[in-house]
Amino acid sequence: MNAALRKMGGLLSVYYAYMTAYRAELILWALANSLPFILMGAWYQAAAGGAFGFTPVDVTRYFLAVFVIRQLTVVWVIWEFDQDVQRGRLSQYLLQPVDPVWRYLAAHLSERVARLPFSALIIALFFLIFPPARFVPHASDVLLAITFATLAFALRFVMQYTLALFALWTERASSLESLMFILYLVLSGAIAPLEVFPPELRELVMWTPFPYFIWVPARLLIGGADVDLMRATVVCVSWIGSLLVVNRVVWRLGLKRHSSMGA
């Protein structure tokens, strides 16, 4: 256990150094997730017209929460893995006694820590420009939101890493993520809160992994009383568990294929 912790500590420390070597890029990465602010403008107008049950300030806070959750849960492992397969870096990782997944995980977690100050700066600027959006969430809401954001990150990472492993057959799996990203945008609550969906559709969507990526943690952050915590936990953990099993099977098969076709 101590050896594993030391290993992860070493990975996190070096990858944090790696991430902070790109200061300018960190700001750009944080800004690149500003889609919620753009959508906020559109939905703000709709809410002002009384088109659905949100007030303009509700809309503003929701999309601000979406921005925060996206900052905490962004995953890019599929592009990294594609590159590593194509450029032969994966072979070098395979020569070391640690599963490459820990490198990718350490890179993501370190990036999160490095990105945090820039994300906070963007939020502070937003509050400065638009004072009505200011709000202080309850500590219990923050705790719940962080818990579900952590689950959201784990789910998104496992799902994308499982898709990434198909690069061991095709050398390019990122196109699978492009397809998945459409579902992610529509069903996660990234472009509209799930409250605008017809109830039957929303019920169906709640059994898929997508609402747990953004909508659940974002609603919890702004005090979402209508989130069924028990179901959210069970569905989210079940998806993570199932995908982990699939991931390990695909990894073993992919490695066999990779080693027979040319590492």
Binding site: R6, G10, L11, G88, S91, Q96
Partner: peptide, 23 residues
Amino acid sequence: NKQQLLWDLPARDTLRLNAAIYG
């Protein structure tokens, strides 16, 4: 023709990484 060193960091960082990986 392949390198394991982290390009933008000092070599010592890759050494620390390898030390952690190999225990």
